[in-house]
Design a protein around this nucleic acid. Structure first.
Ligand code: NAD
Ligand code: NAD
Lengths: 221, 221
DNA sequence: TAACATTTGTGAAGGATTTCACAATCGTGT
DNA sequence: ACACGATTGTGAAATCCTTCACAAATGTTA
């Protein structure tokens, strides 16, 4: 699904997602003072296969030492480099309701380099108020504020009914990356990256799994 | 990845995830008073291909009429049946902090048949308090309360540091389906279904995409 | 220095998923 | 009653992704 055209490589979406997992494990290993880690250990910690780990990494270079494994800190740095985590991204959040508030209160994002710099809402009672040190801006000033703050990633946490209108404006403002929590398929131009956070989908997956268990249709593995 | 053993079919995880999308679109179409819908239209609304839609559905039966398409309400009901959505699931939430509160306040889940029936926390200030009409229970009574309330799905929204201990208890209580928000790979027995909601992963995917854009490595499609 | 145990990096094989392409079938209009 | 346009359902082909299997390379030990 994901191909770097013009470049040499074809990196699958799954590989990129697994890089996130490796990065997370490496952070833990670093804290646990591991110097090196084998593909076997790395795989075990995320329920993957060693071959998968090595293949994923091989798309980007040779980071390991044969007979030894991978240097933990160095590999973490390298994957961070690949994923673009060795810097701070300016993020805007639109809609500070249930889920929006939760995101603003989550310090882990900042630690990973995602800084929520601006928050937008259209509720007069919320505009101007403070959320974790960030003043809520009026959605009226969306385009201008996005540009002035050099926002690179926008998180959509508004009701589904208005999400498309807002995204249209976000795109107009030149934003190229959007994380969407509203349960609908947003339309964006092909040069805009869109990811959806779909919690219902995960619950429905569990529902499906349980149902098949209960129907005695056999075990799902 | 997902196989119904003992049964006849092999249903991929991707297919199940797409069923969720079809279900969502069909709900919209139903509201828009569509009688029938073609695989072409269904595909367009979720950025898939018509062949994909037909193939997915064909794993479960023949729901359409050649020359006409699929009957909207009927297909929605059928997919609901497949996913186990035509009933109510009893859900427990553990950890009513930032994200937990957001989930409790989200009415859409109930509408989809996921009823948060019990909430657990270990914070004395929270235990006994009310969240949207649900009294917060003491995590001490976890096993007993899970059983007494016939809980079938547990949502984990506690800090990563304690998540594994809690999941161990949840598994002991006989729960077979877990949705996890904590950023770690939980260990569960093979007969327990575990899904992870990993927001960092999605942000990191966007980060990767933007970085590759900016490095002029070409366009990512 | 040489033998050994270990683990990487990677082509090739295998498996899974998606797309293609078309016969089969339906509703409609005449 | 029949012809036509539309659309499904599905084997087969194509593509994509994962796993295998092993040569190459390293650190260690004697
Ligand atoms: N709460 C959850 O747990 C949850 C889970 C999954 C998905 N979602 C989705 O996330 C989105 C937000 O959910 P929520 O529960 O936080 O809803 P909410 O109603 O609590 O929050 C929505 C916020 O958006 C603001 N808003 C509304 N219209 C706006 C506009 N035109 N411009 C700017 N701001 C506007 C509202 O003032 C409010 O603050 C919804 O699409 C919902 O379906 C929520
Ligand atoms: N807030 C977010 O936006 C967000 C995003 C992604 C992931 N997460 C993850 O979700 C989890 C919860 O995040 P949060 O921001 O809501 O944290 P939080 O600290 O606001 O909430 C955690 C809750 O768990 C409770 N808790 C702690 N230990 C417990 C125990 N042993 N038994 C029962 N309850 C216990 C706390 O009292 C608190 O109410 C974390 O693992 C976090 O990494 C949060």
């Amino acid at each position: 699904m994901v191909a770097v055209a013009g470049g040499r490589k074809k990196i699958s979406e799954s590989t990129i997602r697994r890089l996130s997992l490796y990065y997370r494990v490496l952070s833990v290993l670093e804290k646990e003072n591991y110097q090196t880690v084998s593909s076997r250990e790395l795989a075990k910690r995320e329920k993957l296969t060693p071959a998968q780990v090595r293949k994923d990494l091989s798309f980007f270079g040779s980071f390991g030492t044969r007979g030894l494994g991978y240097p933990v800190s160095e590999l973490k740095k390298q994957i961070g480099e690949i994923l673009g985590l060795n810097r701070v991204w300016n993020v805007a959040l639109i809609g500070v309701g249930n889920i929006g508030s939760a995101l603003v209160g989550y310090k882990e994002f900042l630690r990973q380099g995602f800084r929520i710099k601006v928050i937008f809402d259209n509720d007069q009672r919320k505009i101007g108020s403070n959320h974790k040190g960030i003043k809520v801006s009026d959605i009226q000033n969306l385009e201008q504020d996005l540009r002035e703050n050099n926002i690179e990633i926008v998180v959509i946490a508004v009701p589904a009914t208005v999400a498309q209108y807002i995204v249209d404006d976000v795109v107009k403002a030149g934003i190229k990356a959007i994380l969407n929590f509203a349960p609908l398929n947003l339309k964006v131009p092909p040069d805009v990256f869109l990811r959806n956070e779909n919690m219902s989908m995960e619950l429905e997956y569990l529902s499906f799994a349980l149902k098949n268990l209960q129907d005695g249709k056999g075990t799902i593995k």
